[in-house]
Write a protein that binds this DNA or RNA. Structure first.
Length: 624
DNA sequence: CATGCACAGCTTTTT
DNA sequence: GCTGTGCATG
């Protein structure tokens, strides 16, 4: 097979070792994606059926890219039958196939927030919604249901009833939060072993990307599937584990040898990305971490441009320096390097503002990756809420979001009354709205408004059977007066966003087999802002260190290398400090040609003051 | 029911 | 120091 010639000995070994558990410790830029894609292509070449392979990644972008790359190597298989997807979309697919009520709504962070606020109010508890949600999420990540949750301290005692109420509300709404998607899949398998068996038999070959970032449920997912055939290949880098705050457990990769018998471990240590100068600096920083699997990256690219350290008097100077350097390098020789080859990486989103100002002053186009996502915009969420109610009228969170948007005379007290009556009767909020015409607990004006709203929604729901998503959405925009209102208020940005949203629907309809409203909503819910990032437009990329993982750029700036920012002030113990160090390492290893490190002596951020150079700077240079 | 003001709260966030 | 949220007012 010709393709094997394009691999180095270790990569080749990883591709050829198809049977039995395999752990590939792939350093930054060592051709990890190449190994996974070639491995899949090789399996197919060996006559393994596409439906017998499952590849799991963390982002849709990674999954899409992988699928594309497999296709370029080997085009003679049915792409429909090959599953390369994120953990979440794989689980949604499984749940939709086996759950009694498969038209569930996926609740995002916003929806979760509204729901938990309701719970806090109802139970008259004053805790931060975020803290409660994090605790619940952590429980679900560890497969602990509301019923099983056993408090061990006062805080958890207060959480328990909240978790129970929150979960019962989710169930009533037929809604699943992101953690439910994973947890319920495992619970399904535990309850119905024959369903698990079905998938064990189907997926004879498993590939797991970014294994260092898996949490307990994700680990279980792979473990349970692999139990039968043990053909599992996990690829990861313990030095790039940066999501422990989301429940990622570095032990999954460190204990791989204990979990499986006859484990083969292959290290990919040749780096094809960075120059020797950059790499040795990154190596020096990460070597300060203990508890690593241990590996040393090397490169054939000897020498290279020097790493530049800049000390600014304040954050504005630092930002000007970055903009100046970008101008200088990109302008060199009248053409130089295009702007998409530059990235500015920072620890916290709040740092982006000063940088943006500097780029605007310098007339340099930039794009921010992350921050508020497109689908997180109010107008998009409003329209989506209409579509969600159509797909699942039980979804009271979405229903309450749009019941008075645009305003149609259904106020807070009215909603409260109907909610109460719904609870008394034990029916959904939407059913209560439908029944309202025959009761007289409401003033005639409110009753009329509700009647009109229900008529509108019922009409939409009827249209669902005959019209596609695009037509439905246009119908919503027109019949609700939403578009009209935005026009009257001259909200042009929002109108543009809606136009873009309509375009994304068209794209969905042309590129997907299942064009149903339900499929569209799943698609949207599981998409994130990094997924539709256009890395070819000529703009400087601004993003957090977290968002930068998996990406590479010719020129990389690490801004704000100060004690308190990186490592972050909240990273208190040594374990957390090590994760900050890995974050720094991830940032450094993004650079292909040149790396710039900067910090400011004085910085205004959250009214705090920083200014001490980061310990990581000292560690990599030995001096400042 | 929309508007305005005070006030909390602020790390990262693949889904 | 800034921004989004929640409550009170008109």
């Amino acid at each position: 097979m010709d393709i094997l010639k394009e691999l180095n000995p270790q990569q080749k070994e990883a591709v050829l070792h198809t049977d039995g558990p395999l752990l590939v410790l792939a350093g930054a830029g060592s051709g990890k994606t190449r190994v996974i894609t070639y491995r899949i292509a090789y399996l197919l070449h060996q006559g393994i059926l596409p439906e017998n392979i499952l590849g799991v990644t963390f982002t849709n972008k990674a999954a899409d890219e992988m699928k594309k790359r497999v296709e370029t190597i080997n085009n003679s298989f049915s792409r429909q039958r090959l599953w390369i997807s994120t953990f979440h979309s794989a689980c949604v697919r499984i749940l939709r196939a086996h759950l009694k009520n498969p038209n569930f709504t996926i609740y995002d962070a916003d929806d979760q927030n509204s729901l938990i606020k309701e719970c806090l109010k109802e139970l008259n508890v004053s805790l931060q919604p975020k803290a409660v949600l994090t605790t619940i999420s952590r429980a679900k990540e560890n497969l602990i249901t509301a019923g099983e949750y056993t408090p061990t301290n006062f805080f958890e005692q207060r959480i328990k009833p909240l978790y129970e109420l929150y979960q019962s509300k989710l169930d009533e709404n037929n809604g699943l939060d992101f953690d439910d998607i994973l947890m319920k899949t495992i619970l399904l398998w535990q309850e119905y072993p024959q369903i698990l068996e079905l998938y064990q038999n189907r997926f004879k070959y498993l590939l797991v990307d970014e294994y260092q970032d898996t949490n307990y449920v994700q680990y279980l997912f792979t473990r349970m599937l692999a139990q039968r055939h043990s053909n599992i290949c996990c690829v990861g880098d313990d030095d790039q584990s940066i999501y422990s705050f989301r429940g990622a457990d570095i032990r999954n990769i460190l204990d791989f040898e204990k979990d499986y018998k006859n484990v083969k471990i292959i290290r990919l240590e040749e780096n094809y990305r960075s120059t020797d100068v950059i790499l040795s600096m990154a190596n020096r920083v990460i070597s300060h971490n203990i508890g690593r699997k241990g590996k040393t990256l090397w490169t054939r690219k000897t020498g290279g441009l020097p790493v530049i350290t800049y000390v600014g008097a304040d954050e504005h100077q630092e930002a000007s320096f970055v903009a100046r350097k970008v101008l200088e390098i990109s302008g060199k020789g009248g053409g130089g390097t295009t702007l998409n080859n530059f990235a500015v990486l920072y620890r916290v989103n709040a740092q982006s503002r000063v940088l943006e100002e500097a780029f605007r002053r310098a007339n340099l186009p930039y794009s921010i990756i992350g921050g508020v996502s497109f689908y997180g915009r109010k107008e998009i969420k409003d329209i989506l809420a209409y579509l969600k109610v159509m797909a699942n009228p039980q979804d009271a969170v979405s229903l309450k979001r749009i019941i008075n948007v645009p305003t149609r005379g259904i106020g807070k007290t009215t909603i409260q009354k109907i909610e109460n009556s719904a609870r008394e009767k034990g029916i959904s909020l939407y059913s209560a709205l439908q029944e309202i015409q025959t009761t007289e607990i409401l003033p005639p004006k409110a009753t009329a408004a509700i009647k009109k709203f229900v008529e509108l929604m019922d009409n939409f729901i009827n249209l669902k059977t005959t019209k596609g998503v695009l037509e439905l959405t246009n119908e919503v925009l027109d019949k609700t007066g939403y578009r009209q209102e935005l026009k009257e208020l001259a909200e042009n940005d929002r109108l543009d966003n809606i136009k873009e949203f309509l375009i994304s629907i068209e794209e969905f309809e042309t590129s997907n087999e299942d064009k149903s409203l339900e499929a569209f909503l799943v698609n949207i819910s599981l998409y994130t802002n990094i997924d539709n990032w256009d890395d070819t437009s000529h703009k400087v990329n601004l993003m957090t260190l977290h968002s930068a993982k998996g990406l590479e750029f010719s020129y990389v700036f690490l801004a704000g290398l100060e004690e308190g920012i990186l490592p972050h002030i909240n990273a208190r113990d040594e374990v957390e400090k090590e994760e900050e160090r890995r974050l720094c390492y991830v940032g450094m290893t993004r650079a292909k040609e040149q790396l710039f490190l900067s910090y400011a002596i004085k910085r205004r951020l959250y009214s705090g003051s920083f200014g001490q150079p980061s310990r990581f700077l000292l560690e990599c240079k030995g001096r400042i």
